[in-house]
Each structure stands twice: as C-alpha cells, then as structure tokens.
Design a binder for these strands. Structure first.
Lengths: 360, 360
DNA sequence: TCGTTTGGCACAATCGATTGTGTAAAGTAA
DNA sequence: TTACTTTACACAATCGATTGTGCCAAACGA
C-alpha cells in the first residue's frame, strides 16, 4: 500500500479508502488506485485488516473427525457457502475428545475467527467451554450433534420425519408387517427414527408390534443376526426399515441368503445414503441426510448472527427435511420411482416447530 | 497483555518475553507472568503476532473438492499432522476449476499462510499461478495430483507399485490368465497402474496379452460390459485386476451373474479401498491408497520447507508405498490372509528413485 | 464579492504483539 | 574502590491496514 501511495503521490489513507470504495474519495482517484493496484498485483494483508477491524474473514469449524460420508459432505457445504460469502474456513478435529474440543475453541478464539460452527464430540457432557465464546460475543452455531435446549442456534436433520417417510413409503409399496432394525436408543438420532417409524404405522392403522423391532448397534453383522431372527418368526415381516444403511445391507444379505427376494418378498429401506447403497444388488432405498444443505444452512445462520453483530438475536433451531431416495430394494409396483430427483420444495428449510424442537 | 503488564507493574515487553520464554527474563518474573496469564485466561492474539512476525501458524490447503473417500481422508491426515505441529489449516476447494484455484491461492496469500498444500484441479494446464507463491518465498507442496517435474515438492502414491503388487498377488493365488480393467490412459494414475500390472506379468513370465486389457472410464456399468466381453472370449481369464474398485465391483457382479464363482473361477482385485469393498459378497481385495499417510507426509515435507525458511532446499518427490488388502474376492488357498494388518515397513516413506520420479 | 457548503484528501492514532537497542542495578574480578 | 560484565527490564519502532478528525480549495448562493 505504501508503494501505491508513493507512486500516486497520495497518502495511504486515500489508497485504503479508494480500495474499499469510501465515499470521500473521488471517482477519478478511485480509478487510478484500482488500476495501479491491479498492475502491481496488490494483495491486501488480511491479518492487518482483521487486526485493525477486530474481525477476520475466517470461520472456525470443529468436527469430531473428517472421515466417512457425513462430515466431509457437511464441511463441503460449509466451505462452499462460506466462500461465496467471502469467508474462509479453518478446520479443527476434536477426535471425539472434549479436551481437544476445548483446545480447538481456544485456538479459534486466538485466531480471531468471526464465528464458529460446532458438531459436538461424543464425549462432551459439559458445555461450559462454549460459554467462553458467548462471553466474548462470538457467534456460534451447532450442527448435527448439538447442545440441547432452545437458547442455542442449531441445524439438525429431522430424523423423525425421515423414519416416518421411509416407513410410509414401505406401506405404500404394500408392506403390512414392517420390521424395524433399530440403533442404540440413547442416541437421539436412532430414537427419533424409531419414533418416525411408529408414527407411520399408527397413521396407517397398522399395529405397533415390539416383536418386530430389533435393537442393534447398527453394524452389518448384527443386522444379519437380527434379520435371521425376524425371518425365523412364525409371521415373518414383508418389509424392513433399518435406522442405518449398514443395517439395511445386513438385512438384505440375510434375506437373499435365505432364498427370499428383495423387494418382492421383503422390501427394504435404510437410512443415511451411504455410498455403497447404489452399488448393492438391488440398490438400497434410503434416506438422504442433506449433508451439504446442513452445512449451508449452518453457515447461513452463522452469517445472520455475525451480521446481527451482538444485537439481540432470538436463537433458532432449524430442522432439515430428509429426502427419501427410492431405489430397487423397495419398489414393488413399478409405478413411481424417483432415483435421485430432488423436489424443489424439499430444498427449503423447515423452521422449528414444537416437534422439531424435541429433536434438539 | 496490557492488563497483565499493568497489574504486575512491568512493561508489555516483559510480558511478551516471559510468555515466549525469552532468555532475558528472570525465572521469578516468568512464573508470575505465567500464573497471571492463566488466571486471566489470557489468549494471545494470533493475528497481531503473525502480523508482527510476518508468519502465521496457518497452512493453506487447496483441493478439488471435499467429498468421496480420498480427499477427506487426506485432509484428515493433514489436519492431524499440522495440529500436532502447532499449525491450523484453512481449506479451499477449487471445484476442479483453475480460476477458482487461482483465486484460492490469492486468498491464502492474503491470509499470510505459512505454507500451502495443493492437489491440482482437473482443468489446470497452466502452472504460472504457482510461481507467484514461489516468488514470495511461500513453501509449496503438491500431493496426489501434482505438477510434473523434479523441481517441485510433491507426495504421491506409487500407483505402479500398486498395480504390481495387486497383480503379483493374483499370480500367487494361482491365476495364469489375468485380465486388466484399465482406466483412461491419459490419467497418470491409470497409466501407472497398468504398467505395474504388466511389470508383474513380465516378472512371472506370463505373456502380455492386449486382448486381456479392456479400457473403461472406471465406472461400474462399463466394467460389467468389459467383464462380459472378457468372459465371452474363448479363453476366459481366471483373474481380474481392475484399476479401480468400481471396476472390480462391476466385474465381480458380472462374473457372479454368469454363475461363476469368485474367487474360485475368477479371482478379483481392485484399487482404492473404497468403503463398499468390505461389504460386498465376497469382500473385495484392493489396494489402499494411504490417504492419511499422504496427508501426513505432505505436512512433514511442508514443515521442512518452512523451517528451511528460504534457504536452498533440494526439491523432493515422495512416493508412498501402497498397501495390498487381501480380502475374499481373491483368496484361493486359504493360507495367508491379512485382513488389514499393516506391516511396519510399509509405514515408511519411499524416497523417490528413477522409477518413482517417472510417476511425477 | 463575501460567506458557506462540500468534495477530496492528509494526519495521526490505533489494533496487539514483537524486537533491537538502551540502561540501571547487581554481581565479579582485580 | 574501580572497571567491567551480566542480568533484567523498559523504550519505542514496527508489522499493514483502518478511521475519526481536520484542513484546504473549489463551487455555490446571494
């Protein structure tokens, strides 16, 4: 900047204001400055700018890890949305460790980020370290693994809706005895998916039969066992909603091993849209978790908070509507089949209602 | 810092030097400062520090995208290694677009990162934008998708070795007619995997038969077609090395559809260790790409460059040794089977030789 | 022509930490 | 006691950009 100022015989003030389009600089001077800046390929020093202004163009992300299908996709969504808004992201992994999570927050604080996006580590039971952010007025948004309560800003998937939609789909395909391969019920996501399943049964007037629900850790092998158990029962199910794709996969493999056909004898739906669900034979019907949209929604919320700049802001919880991906493992009447077409109305966010708040 | 200085009745100089363990500060004073800093929960402002010192504790990453199996894992490795060394990472996606890649570099420059890790976008043919980094003395390391030449620092997987190891494994399992489902040969990775395949054949004294090589875009459907073609030939193969797991998957499905057994009739090996390779029936033998190690190796190299601090540094290319994961799709004699046990010697980096340099 | 407005720009302080240089006090040797 | 070294700390400049305030001159109205 000093060079530019010297060359044009003006002060650095003028340069700075010309570049930031300040009203007190004449258009002629602005042109000259801009041209010279381009010529010299001037790169503003963001550090200096952020130091002086007290706000950087950086957002902090704290995730348990960057692996698997879910978090990378969310991060992808976050980075895209942030970058569009002129922000960059600095990523931290907590490795499912509260202590590391705390350290990450400190680091982000000292990096003077403009806001923080957090998905909680599995071991986080105490949330005091987030108060530090709050006390410094640093905007904070949780996603997926969130702090419960309605005084936080958060974005989650509406798992209950997901369980409901998947189950209703099976019902529409003619299933009347629908089993549920459930996950650990101390985890909200699995509890909610199960509730959605029950909702759909009730709505259709089908009986809620606990013998049709098998609880697993949602790994393939346990699902195989669960399915074997279900098929051994006198009145075997004609449909299965698994609360996770690994569950659905195990179920499908066992069904086929016993010589039954999917979906004709047993229709199957999973949850999560794991990569492998498109390569199985038949491909698995599943629920997409809108990972990217979750990231984008979280960034939108965070940017609102940043723009509010400390002014009172009513905390908001957003629940994303999951998307049913109908594939071959569940389609009996070959009528409707949307492979991956997204309905426009599913793109919008669902503002939290009493039901969605329960999720949080 | 000013608060601490006031409370202790010393200058900020003393505070700063006490915190950074400067020799000219007495141990007594250091203790006092440290204690007070802890008490007030003092967080240094990294921006100010970086501004003054001219170097931040940030590393920049530019990847085509953060999705799929590969890049997230590499990023995972990068973040872990960087964080251990006291650095944080700021992530940018080029979306396979050179213009975006250029913009990302500019942003990282203006963020005053200490170094940059890059995996090229697919559309990058012109590498002048990297010269800008060089001219500013900013350390730069490429990984996976790298700039060719021996005047760059880069970390890659030894794809040729991977092709060789996979093929040799099939030979050891008794295969004598081994087909190759190849990928687009204008991409180095596929070219090298094919070369490794040929190397293994030659070493074993098996004929190189072009009719056993089918070129595809490495998608499942084309692999199915390729396999059908191979099986229709008068002298069908008894083993298949696919240059990608989607190819292996398609091949396996077609083999099974024709009533043949995997691995007894046709043994199969893939490449990439995609998530689904463990859930297929049988599970797929494949080559792991050492994603995490690649990230770690890249960071190590970058840190060396940073520490060299402008002093002459001989550019180095590192080739990681791929790891063969033997699974059920290829094991005929049930003798050896290492599911995922890593041999210690595979952990080390292989410094580039003439062969590996060809890769780059 | 005089007074007033306003457009266009410079001065200088500031953000928070770092560092070369200066200096007083304490310690050491002769 | 004198001369010299070492220890321990303060002063003040600095990194690069931003911004409140102040000033000059041209333009304007009467």
């Amino acid at each position: 900047m000093a060079d530019l100022a010297r060359e044009l015989g003006v002060s650095m003030t003028t340069i700075s204001r010309a570049l930031s389009d300040h009203y007190s600089i004449g258009p002629a001077m602005k042109q000259k400055v801009l041209k010279l800046a381009k010529k010299y390929n001037y790169q503003p020093n963001r550090l200096a700018s952020a130091l002086r202004k007290g706000k950087s163009q950086l957002l902090g992300i704290v995730v348990p890890y960057i692996e698997g299908r879910f978090f990378p996709s969310v991060v992808h969504g976050i980075e895209s949305a942030a970058s569009k808004a002129g922000y960059n992201v600095i990523i931290c992994q907590s490795n499912e460790d509260v202590a590391q999570e705390r350290r990450n927050l400190d680091i982000l604080l000292s990096a003077q980020v403009a806001g923080v996006l957090v998905s909680l580590s599995r071991t986080t039971r105490d949330f005091r370290h987030f108060e530090k952010l709050r006390s410094r007025g640093l905007p904070l948004v949780f996603f997926d693994r969130i702090v419960e309560g309605d005084n936080v800003n958060a974005v989650v998937l509406d798992d209950q809706e997901g369980g409901y939609v998947a189950t209703r789909h099976l019902i529409e395909q003619g299933c009347r005895r629908i089993a549920h391969i459930a996950g650990p019920q101390h985890l909200n996501i699995y509890k909610n998916r199960r509730q959605g399943y029950l909702d759909a049964l009730r709505e259709a007037g089908l009986p809620e039969d606990e013998s049709l629900i098998v609880y697993t850790d949602m790994v393939q092998s346990q699902a195989v066992d669960a399915m074997r158990e279900l098929l051994a029962a006198p009145n075997r199910p004609d449909g299965v909603f698994a609360a996770g794709d690994y569950g659905a996969l195990g179920a499908q493999q066992e069904v086929q091993r016993q010589g039954l056909r999917v979906p004709q004898d047993v229709a199957i739906a999973g949850f999560s849209n794991e990569t492998f669900t498109v390569v199985t034979e038949p491909s698995l019907t599943t629920i997409d978790q809108r990972c990217e949209e979750m990231g984008q929604a979280a960034v939108r919320l965070l940017l609102e908070l940043i723009e509010a700049d400390g002014r009172p802001f009513a905390p908001r919880q957003v629940a994303l509507r999951p998307e049913l991906l109908v594939r071959n493992s569940s389609v009996r009447n070959s009528s409707v089949r949307n492979s991956a077409v997204r309905h426009p109305e599913q793109e919008r966010l669902v503002e939290v209602t009493a039901k969605a708040r329960k999720l949080a």
